[in-house]
Nucleic acid binder design. Structure first.
Length: 713
DNA sequence: TGGGGATTT
């Protein structure tokens, strides 16, 4: 073959689907824990004995009392909605009942990884098998299933991924969608796809079953969506919780929270206190106030032990909420929404609820997000209240009036109508949905949001002029990163800087990797970062990430890594995750590329002059090659061409798309610098418009990298 | 010199 300088840009069509999902599953290459190929009779006996001891407990669950009636309904209808309150046992028992009655595999989806893993672990004990045998789970980086697995707990994201590879879900004869009331984007997407399956693709398969499980009383919505599917109600097993309201509304939620905590501590008997506040800032304030005043409080009341809890908190500190305290002490946990569903803390008898939470709202017409503090819904208020009644009767103090409560909306607004939906739309396109506007949306995001998403995809070359998915779009749909970052990766491959860009993309895919240092350490840590990342100091945050990645990767011992992370205010746990994601991305890029050009590969330096990167060794991370920042940043422009701004003489920046003023966020290494043009990964609006994860670019790069979209505005 | 809720492939 006469090919010397220019090689084929990309082997686009060769997405080996089986390989992709296999790679995905093997993830970090860990073997399924506890799974053994050769079973001894004694082992099985032991597992079955254990299961038998659990049976008595199971029979006491509310769901067991209605088993026959419930199963009759589930068997008679293709779709059922099951309302099961907390403690009903629905998530563990119903799948097992179903297992005995139907042939074929059952999928149970969960919004969160830990829930999927814990449920599978519990249910396999009850069933009498090792996890990954008859009962297993599948979450990112961890697959505990085998050919024998008939009941599979999995995250919503995993089932969607399987759908992308097998739109018929032909492996399954039943899908149970759990926690549907949470209305996450992914759950909503699954429900839409299932409806499509039922009315079109598997219309005649009368044995295919869908069960929607919800904890709240919004079942009518689901029932109506699935053509008036019957609703089955199972009561829960929570203790009674008394509710108290304030006589008047308050303005200062921090003051009000502190006063309530002190009052509860003095007036109420034994039991820990869980307080819900909207965000980190409020939590830190209340925590420090409590630390200050705790010693001065009356001796006869328990000693307050304030404990903050939010996602950005280092894991070690998060775990402190589970520590036991001395008899004369009382835990006061100050938490965000994380304690509403994700973290359950034993010992809580009292809940104090600010009635607020924070949400990120995407403005698709502006391409930016805003962070708002908003009142919770009644459903959420009830969920928070329930946290006080898990072990014994409890009390819930609401820091708002009863009249305020009455005015709250019934249910939490579904995520999909306030989010960026580029990826959901790409999924639809990938599954061949042409009429996006009239798809089976449980909640239609609206015409303008859908059109904005289509335009984004078009600008990324994921869609053709006729609105069909392109080969590039197919690749983006399969990559485990946002479509924007997917476009960047594919461009980087063409530029021959894939390895470096994968490092950076992996860093960008991890939340809270670069931490905001406490104010007293801020200057020291900022200076240290600039000193460590000399190129990042010039070219911006993406280059900084690469520099940090290199150093982290070159440190051999985990102790040293930990110390290094601390000194720079970056997350150790985050970086461990970066490596896993880096590996997964690398495997996907490899499998996409196919093995066609095997012989043409050249090993060695990633210098960007070669049109095709050597990918046979992509798992080998390159930390020693010189950084070609220009090609790296140009690759990013491919995905973020609309996130650019030009520096003005007065040191402000104006966005290329709208001409609006935007400022470099103070957390950026480029903050306070005078730069001709910048590209940013995220545009957030708080007090004013801020660019986050900023890089210095040249204005002529814009024209060079600008696809068809720039002219259109 | 700002502030960041929670998920997931």
């Amino acid at each position: 073959m006469p090919r010397k300088t220019v090689q084929k840009p990309f082997t686009i069509t060769v997405i080996v689907q089986g390989t992709v999902i296999k790679d995905n599953y093997s993830g970090d290459g860990k073997r399924v824990s506890g799974f053994r190929r050769n079973y001894k009779h004694a082992d099985i006996l032991k597992l079955k004995m254990k299961a038998r001891t659990l049976l008595d407990g199971r029979k006491k669950l509310p769901v067991f009392k209605v088993k026959d009636e419930l199963m009759k309904q589930l068997m008679e209808h293709r779709v059922s909605v099951v309302i099961g309150e907390t403690g009903s046992g629905k998530s563990t028992q119903i799948p097992q009942f179903l297992m005995k009655q139907i042939k074929g595999k059952i999928a149970v989806t969960q919004p969160r990884r830990v829930a999927a893993i814990n449920l599978a672990t519990r249910v396999s004990e009850e069933f009498g098998c090792d996890v990954g045998r008859d009962v297993g789970y599948a979450v990112r980086f961890n697959n505990a299933t085998s050919y024998k697995t008939m009941l599979k707990y999995m995250t919503d994201g995993m089932l969607l991924r399987e759908m992308m590879l097998d739109p018929l879900l032909s492996d399954y004869s039943a899908v149970i969608v759990d926690e549907a009331h949470e209305r996450t984007i992914l759950t909503d997407m699954i429900l839409g796809f299932l409806k499509e399956l039922l009315v079109r693709k598997r219309k005649d398969d009368k044995n295919f079953r869908v069960i929607v499980m919800s904890a709240t009383l919004d079942a009518d919505k689901f029932s109506a969506f699935f053509n008036k599917a019957p609703i089955f109600f199972i009561e829960g097993r929570l203790f009674h919780v008394d509710r108290y309201y304030l006589p008047h509304s308050v303005d200062d939620i921090i003051d009000s929270m502190v006063k309530s905590i002190i009052q509860v501590n003095q007036e109420q008997t034994k039991g820990d206190v869980l307080c819900f506040l909207p965000g980190q800032e409020d939590i830190d304030k209340v925590t420090s106030i409590l630390h200050q005043i705790a010693p001065a409080l009356p001796r006869e009341a328990p000693m307050i032990v304030p404990l903050p809890l939010y996602a950005a908190l280092p894991p070690q500190q998060q775990l402190k909420v589970f520590d036991k305290v001395k008899p004369h002490q009382r835990k006061v946990i100050l938490s965000t929404n994380i304690a509403e569903t994700s973290v359950t803390i034993p010992g809580v008898r009292y809940v104090i609820d600010s009635g607020l939470r924070k949400i990120k709202v995407w403005r698709h017409e502006l391409g930016l997000s805003t962070l708002l503090t908003v009142p919770i819904s009644k459903a959420s208020a009830s969920q928070r209240t329930g946290r006080a009644g898990r072990e014994a009767p409890g009390k819930c103090f609401r820091l708002y009036t009863e009249n305020d409560y009455i005015k709250l909306s019934q249910n939490t607004e579904p995520e999909i109508i306030r989010s960026e939906i580029v990826y959901p739309v790409l999924m639809l396109k990938r599954l061949g949905v042409d009429d996006i506007l009239n798809w089976f949306w449980l909640e239609n995001p609206g015409r303008s949001a859908l059109i904005a998403a289509l335009q984004q995809l078009y600008a990324l070359n994921a869609l053709s002029d006729s609105g069909k998915i392109t080969d590039l779009g197919e690749q983006m749909a399969v990559l485990p990163v946002t479509p924007h970052l997917g476009a960047v990766l594919i461009q980087a491959s063409k530029f021959g800087v894939l390895s470096t860009v994968m490092d950076i993309v992996a860093c960008l895919s991890v939340d809270n990797l670069i931490l905001t240092p406490p104010s007293e350490q801020r200057d020291v840590i900022n200076a240290k970062r600039r000193e460590t990342c000399t190129l990042g100091d010039r070219y911006g945050d993406l280059v900084m990430l690469k520099e940090l990645f290199n150093i982290y990767n070159d440190i051999s011992s985990s102790d040293e890594r930990r110390i290094w992370c601390k000194s720079l205010g970056v997350s150790y746990k985050g970086f461990k995750n970066v490596l896993r994601i880096r590996k997964q991305i690398s495997q996907y890029m490899d499998s996409m590329d196919g093995r066609k050009n095997e012989k043409e590969r050249h090993s060695g330096v990633e210098d960007g002059n070669k049109s095709k990167n050597d990918d046979s060794n992509e798992d080998e991370i390159k930390t020693s090659v010189p950084l070609n920042y220009e090609l790296v940043l140009k690759s990013f422009l491919k995905g973020f061409i609309t996130n650019t701004a030009i520096g003005m003489p007065d040191r402000s920046y104006r966005t290329v798309t709208s001409g609006d003023t935007i400022s470099i966020h103070p957390s950026s290494l480029l903050f306070g610098k005078k730069i001709d043009a910048v590209m940013y990964i995220e545009h957030v609006y708080t007090m004013k418009g801020y660019a986050r994860n900023v890089s210095a670019i040249k204005t002529d790069w814009l024209r060079e990298m600008a696809p068809h979209c720039l002219d259109r505005g």
